[in-house]
Simulated scan of single mutants.
Amino acid sequence: MSISVKNIMRLSGGAILIASLGACASQQTAPMSNSPLTGPVNTGTYPHFTPDPKGETTQFTPEEKDALRSRTSVAKSGQAGPSSDPAVAARRQAELQLLKKQQEADLKEIEGKSSSTPQ
């Protein structure tokens, strides 16, 4: 049996090709195993991408804070409206009703005079 050199070369080339394809199919590598980067790590904390903000102005001292609180509470009490006291609200409502009646009377008087005058 004589096998030609040409057939031997074909068979050996085919064997090498089959062996190399078989090696590729059976190799299981971890994804990105050749990368220097590792995957995400669960650190148990929320990601923080920005630096902590710093105060742009000087901070209040405790004395300044107390003084500011007292000034604002005085200003707040000075702005209390009539709804804070029912008697004041009732008096204000009565004044508005009286003013309304006076204006209605004045308006009727003005309209009565203007309609009676000839044009």
Rank of each mutant, 00 (worst) to 15 (best):
P31V: 05
T57P: 02
G112L: 15
I8F: 04
S26G: 06
G55I: 07
E63T: 04
S20N: 01
K65V: 06
K113L: 15
T117H: 13
Q97C: 02
C24W: 03
M32V: 05
L96C: 07
V88S: 08
Q103W: 13
L96D: 10
K54R: 12
K65M: 15
L11E: 08
E104D: 14
L96S: 10
P53E: 01
A87N: 14
T50C: 03
S116K: 14
S116H: 06
K100V: 09
P40A: 09
T61M: 03
K101I: 11
V74H: 11
G13I: 00
K65L: 14
K54I: 07
G112I: 07
R91L: 11
P53R: 01
M32C: 08
P31Y: 07
N42A: 09
R92I: 04
S33D: 05
M1W: 07
T117V: 14
K54F: 00
P51V: 04
D66T: 06
E56G: 05
D106K: 14
M9P: 01
L98Y: 08
R10G: 07
F49C: 02
R91S: 03
G112M: 08
I110S: 14
G14M: 00
K101V: 08
L96G: 11
P62M: 03
S35L: 07
K76C: 03
Q28R: 09
T45I: 10
G44Q: 06
K113N: 10
S35F: 04
A94E: 11
A25N: 04
A90M: 10
G44R: 02
I18C: 03
A75M: 09
P82D: 12
R91V: 02
S12P: 02
P118R: 08
A25W: 06
T29E: 15
E111I: 12
Q59W: 11
Q28M: 06
S33A: 08
L17F: 14
N42I: 05
P118A: 11
A80K: 12
E104F: 05
S33F: 12
K101Q: 13
F60S: 14
A80G: 14
A23K: 01
L107I: 14
